[in-house]
Amino acid sequence: MTLDIVQMVLVTVLTAATPLILAGIGELVTERAGVLNLGVEGMMVLGAAAGFAVAMQTGSTGLGALGGAGAGVLLAALFGVLTVGLAANQVASGLALTILGLGLSGLVGASYVGMKREPAPHLALPGLTDLPGIGHLFFGQDAFVYAALVLVVAVWWFLGRTRAGLTLRAVGDDHTATHALGVKVRKVRFLAVLFGGACAGLAGAYLSLAYTPFWAPAMTAGRGWIALALVVFASWRPFRVAAGALLFGGATVLQLHAQAAGLGLPGQLLSAMPYLATILALVLLSLGRRRGGSPGPAALGQVFTPSR
């Protein structure tokens, strides 16, 4: 019986972590290419609204997810045109993107407030899903969760094992040098920004289609910012993003349980813990930097203008 309680907690941790994994892995790719997109929250919330709207119109969760990702891509494309194409400041553009995304999502979702729909279907494998203790955790999740986990492995493989991934890392490390070698720096960066947008939009769609299957304004509730912090916390490594997301998800669930259990600690303090952990991780990372090399992409946030 206790095993099932543990499983129940772990399932909630995993579902709370999934949007963070999705958005975080997208931002990781963007940042490894040297672009800092602070608009994750905006792309995510627009993805949530658009995803829910498309799903309501078509009745299909899959199309909804695509719609969410597409909305993220559109917003990211705007950011890419500004920062990669026109060499605008990435920090300012990213912040503006978040505000724009929040506003647009209110517009898109206005007529859907208060509507409900069935959550995304969960995997059900006869025999496996009903395994006591682990069945639901491993074989009873919805497609978003599996997609997030597959994405982590895929991004890890892409960055470390493929030529295109190497090019992307090189662009993020030194755009002048890679440009001199003939790499199309801006093209690589633009594609990386689009990928980040798709992931953030998908993360938003997960929230409105699976996590809490309805749309409410600003329903992302800062998860985009957590995803941003996660990437730094994970020192730009895919598996660490997943681990960090699970930790953050765990903290969220723990905080709920702690509040329910009437623990002496204020809930706000508990929900602040992951952020404190991020600050600590940043300090440790900058200590490590003294030994040479750079923990993150060396060209992160730098605008590239080719001379031609």
Binding site: R163, R169, D173, A177, T178, L181, V183, S294
Partner: peptide, 22 residues
């Protein structure tokens, strides 16, 4: 190049692989 066109945080092999056939 005189001012080396190298990515500092990549390894020697990775820097070379950047311009080699896929």
């Amino acid at each position: 190049f005189q001012h080396f066109s190298l990515c500092e945080n990549l390894t020697v092999a990775e820097n070379i692989a950047l311009v080699m056939p896929k």
